[in-house]
């Protein structure tokens, strides 16, 4: 009798521990996505600059996540970054002239691939390639361009005043 109560408690303990592991896997981690996502299909996009895009980043269309980046690699013959994405199988109607751009979630958030549908009647399939791409916005480049323009503008106005003086 006594050993039976102990066994019941141990059984409850093991069940509790396994349930905790299961909940961690399904509710806290991303395991459930793989379950529902199925295999999906693979598409490729080439970018001049992918910024800090990493594999496993989100691929979204209209703000809804429809897939994930599976790998980011560099093509040494064209000097472009090749981004391979896996799109959920249920979103199989992406037009073949869909365009891709690399966007940032929030001001300093992580980068993701945003897709914008085109008007084509053909759909992208396994291994399809997105032709229209827009590079990531690199903050340093934007700032340096802004500062450069500003410096150039200042130089022009100074030049004008000098010219006025000369005259």
């Amino acid at each position: 009798m006594h050993s039976k109560t102990i066994e019941i408690w141990v059984g409850l303990f093991v069940a509790l521990g396994l349930a905790a592991m299961f909940l961690l896997a399904m509710k806290v981690s991303n395991l459930s996505e793989f379950e529902t996502g199925g295999e999906g299909y693979k598409i490729i996009a080439r970018f001049q600059n992918v910024g800090s895009l990493r594999s496993r980043a989100a691929v979204s269309m209209g703000g809804v996540r429809i897939g994930r980046v599976s790998s980011v690699s560099f093509d040494k013959s064209t000097y472009e970054a090749v981004v391979e994405m896996r799109i959920d199988g249920k979103y199989d109607t992406l037009p073949s002239d869909t365009s891709a751009s690399i966007l940032t979630a929030g001001l300093l958030g992580e980068q993701y691939v945003g897709l914008t549908p085109g008007g084509s009647e053909d759909y992208l399939g396994e291994g399809g390639q997105i032709e229209l791409t827009q590079s990531a916005l690199v903050l340093e480049e934007v700032i340096s361009r802004f500062l450069f323009n500003k410096a150039e503008g200042d130089g022009k106005s100074e030049g004008k005043s000098d010219g006025a003086k000369g005259k």
Binding site: F13, V14, L16, G17, L18, A20, M21, L23, L24, V28
Partner: peptide, 16 residues
Amino acid sequence: LVSMPLLAAVFSLVGV
């Protein structure tokens, strides 16, 4: 050996 992973999983879940 068996109890530790179960306890750690419970700890993490309750912590979350």
